[in-house]
Design a protein around this nucleic acid. Structure first.
Length: 206
DNA sequence: CGTTGGATCTTCT
DNA sequence: GAAGATCCAACGC
């Protein structure tokens, strides 16, 4: 079942980030369908979150899409190399987003391996935000595409993978040490024990 | 095992 | 000019 606009256009980005665990991220790039189960996410809570690209209401060509209505992709280039995929949430004008940090490969693993230049399946195929984007063929050109159409390029489905609260670990976000106090917020969520969770670490929880 | 540095685009100083 | 929501290969133990 496709996640609809009512899923994305809610206020609580922390809840959405947790509910995305176990959902299936699907891409259809020129007819090649690949997918993975979301196992790690990070919430970015808009203008008051020092770790967010939209902190302080900042608007650039890159971040404008974060201000759009929930249910579109925000894809940006990190360190000049990696294409990082986010889900835009909340309503028009409120720049919330959830970074997808890792997925467990599901469909067409052979295509994902080829995109990554790998021969054998190991967790590094899709553990980490840059790795999963490359595996699924997601690029910055896909920023602002709608996620609300299961005939589209990128969409997310509920396939009844049930994740209990007890299976979810909350921790600090990775690579945001510059964000002062906000670097200590427990805004990263992952499925306990899943092999495809990234190796990245945030600051120790205060 | 752990640490280090290079790749190289967007944004801000 | 520098730093960043990263990854990987090349080292050193």
């Amino acid at each position: 079942m496709l996640l609809n606009k009512d899923f994305y256009r809610r206020e609580d980005v922390l809840l959405i980030a947790q509910e995305l665990l176990g959902k299936v991220l699907v891409t259809n790039i020129n007819g090649l369908v690949t997918s993975g189960i979301i196992v790690e996410t990070e919430a970015y809570a808009g203008v008051n979150d020092r770790a967010s690209h939209a902190y302080g209401g900042r608007r650039t060509n890159r971040t404008e899409v974060m201000y759009h209505d929930g249910g579109v992709a925000y894809v940006y280039l990190c360190y000049g190399i990696h294409h990082l995929f986010n889900v835009v949430t909340n309503i028009d004008g409120v720049p919330h987003a959830v970074l997808i940090r890792a997925v467990e490969p599901l469909e067409s693993i052979d295509i994902m391996l080829e995109r990554r230049g790998k021969e054998v399946l190991t967790p590094s195929l899709t553990a980490g935000p840059g790795s999963l984007s490359q595996s699924l063929g997601i690029k910055t050109a896909h920023s602002d595409v709608s996620l609300l159409d299961n005939k589209g390029i990128i969409y997310i489905e509920d396939r009844n993978v049930n994740i209990n609260k007890e299976q979810i670990v909350a921790n600090t976000r990775v690579g945001v040490a510059y964000a002062q106090d906000d670097a200590y917020l427990p805004y990263r969520f992952f499925i306990k024990g899943n092999k495809y969770v990234s190796k990245g670490k945030g600051l120790p929880i205060k």
